[in-house]
Amino acid sequence: MSNANVQAVARYQNDFLREVEERVEEGHMVKMCMQCGVCAGSCPFGPDWEHSPQKIFMMIRAGKRDEVLGSDSMFMCTSCYSCIVRCPRELPITHIMHGLANYAHRLGLAPKGQPTREFATLFWNNLVKKGRVNELTLTLGHYFTNGLVSGIKTALGMQRIGLGLFLAKRLNPMEIFGGHGVKDLKGFHAIVAKAKEIEDRKKGFTA
């Protein structure tokens, strides 16, 4: 069988849809989309992405696994919930987008170097570290994601803002040495680890 035929066999069959239903947050709602497009039109970053949510849902139903999981569209979501409140079928679109992004990320299929993918990862790791977000290390960490030189440039570019915030007592340079955090850090980490373990087990990720 030629490659094209292999693809044809899988098309519009429910394999990928089932995978999404089982392994993606709120994935069981993907099938309820009726392709009205209100989500696509509601997203503030619609013009910036390749696939609208409604189109992603159709792609899932059409079995386009690689295209969906390789799409950077999910990372454009700013969690503004405009799509959710307007969706006539009450699909939790924001969460599905997050779920797909998470799933693609975990599988390593998400676009490499996608800036929001990296920032979001950084954010989570940052918060997990101390139980609370350290705004300074988060910011600096982000600026240096693309390497030292580019990081210095960005950081310098944003220096004025940082300085302003510092003067307004809204950024504490001392945070770099520790800063806010939960006291029972051990317990916090245990919870996160356990939750991750349960979820991974359920979704079939093996560590």
Binding site: A8, V9, R11, Y12, Q35, K55, M58, M59, A62
Partner: peptide, 17 residues
């Protein structure tokens, strides 16, 4: 059977077996 059709949402010619 192989059903050929134009998927109007995905905007492409495609088929299903």
């Amino acid at each position: 059977c192989k059903v050929s059709f134009r998927d109007l949402i995905l905007d492409e010619e495609t088929s299903i077996n």
